[in-house]
Amino acid sequence: MDDAELRSAVIAELRTIAPEVDGDEIRDDRPLRRQVDLDSLDWLNFLIGLHQRLAVEIPEADYAQLVTVDDLVGYLKARV
């Protein structure tokens, strides 16, 4: 998967939790949780959803480094 496809997958998963999100309005280099209202449960479910959607293991110890869409795409790209 290339970056654009991974970004689409990230946004699609995000929209299952927060369907109000418009993917075009998300700035990829800024913390996602400062742009979208996600509580701790939403965030957990989002990362679990990404794991299931892309069959990528995301250990909890890595959660801290996943802050922006860019972070997520880079992380997933190395593992898909």
């Binding site: 927060a18 109000e20 209202d37 509580d39």
Partner: peptide
């Protein structure tokens, strides 16, 4: 269903809106 959820989240915020 997603449209209703989006509506609720936009108005109420993540903590109060239904999951």
């Amino acid at each position: 269903r997603m449209d209703i959820l989006a509506h609720a989240r936009r108005k109420l915020g993540a903590t109060v809106a239904p999951k």
